[in-house]
Write a protein that binds this DNA or RNA. Structure first.
Lengths: 140, 140
DNA sequence: CTACTTGCAAACTCTTTGCACCATA
DNA sequence: TATGGTGCAAAGAGTTTGCAAGTAG
């Protein structure tokens, strides 16, 4: 599930991909930043290596998803946000009022998953579930 | 909740907005088409009135949301889809495999709403909830 | 060396905005 | 006739792509 240390390099090589400094930088950025947009990742990468191009970031993010090391979610209107699979799966709660995003454990939505499976035969992709609403802070 | 007949005109006027043929066309399109993207709405409107501009569609969709007659959801990567509030609230299930969208009754997610409220103090916006996964057809 | 990658620039999709003209109230 | 609305064109985000030069294996 998680990506222990540097195994990702073997994963890449095994699939015929190459290990490049750009890919390392992008992976690092996705791991460090959480809910990072491509632009966020780009900015972070460029702090360490100003020559890297935005399109390389896009291509690498796509690659990371393809090999299952990261995934993206649409948290509202703008750009999507990426997170690495080092961390356990989680559900996003997005507050419409203060725009903050909190992560909650997947078991909180277990009953939803079961209900959809039983009543609709639908297999929920919990890792991509985003719930919009108003957070505790903003309701009080 | 629903919009009985032509009351929306009073609603607009009451807020100082004007009734225009373009607005009627866009509202009709949103009501007829379901899960319509701005482009879908545009195409539908232009069948009846070729002169209407895309930016008018965008401006009108924004207006309809503002006065609570429609809302939009992000069903995946591309453009958002709009639906009118004539129909009861519903949750969207989007199949990653065949891309179909089904609507299910909000009570199916009642337990989720309760859990998030009790455990996180989070008020879920059920009307904007979209669940990604694999539908019954595609799992078999 | 050879194939995969990158940087660069251009193209693309989706959406917003400024402004003069037009039409509703 | 006074605003608010529309069409048009241009600008803006966000993302993708073609291609020549660079580099990992």
């Amino acid at each position: 599930m998680a990506s222990p240390g540097e195994d990702w390099q073997d994963e890449l090589r095994a699939r015929g991909y190459r290990i490049t400094p750009q890919r390392q930088l992008v992976l690092d950025a996705v791991r460090v930043l959480e809910h990072a947009t491509p632009e966020d990742v780009y900015a972070h990468v460029r702090q360490r290596s100003p020559g890297v191009n935005l399109s390389t970031v896009y291509r690498t993010l796509e690659l990371l998803e393809e090999i299952g090391m990261a995934s993206h979610t649409h948290l509202g209107h703008g750009a999507p946000t990426y997170h690495s699979h080092d961390k356990p799966e989680h559900v996003h709660l997005v507050c419409r009022s203060c725009k903050t995003v909190q992560e909650v454990a997947p078991d909180l939505v277990g009953s939803l998953v079961d209900t959809l499976k039983d009543r609709k035969g639908f297999e929920t992709d919990v890792g991509h579930l985003t719930v919009f609403g108003i957070c505790e802070e903003c309701t009080s």
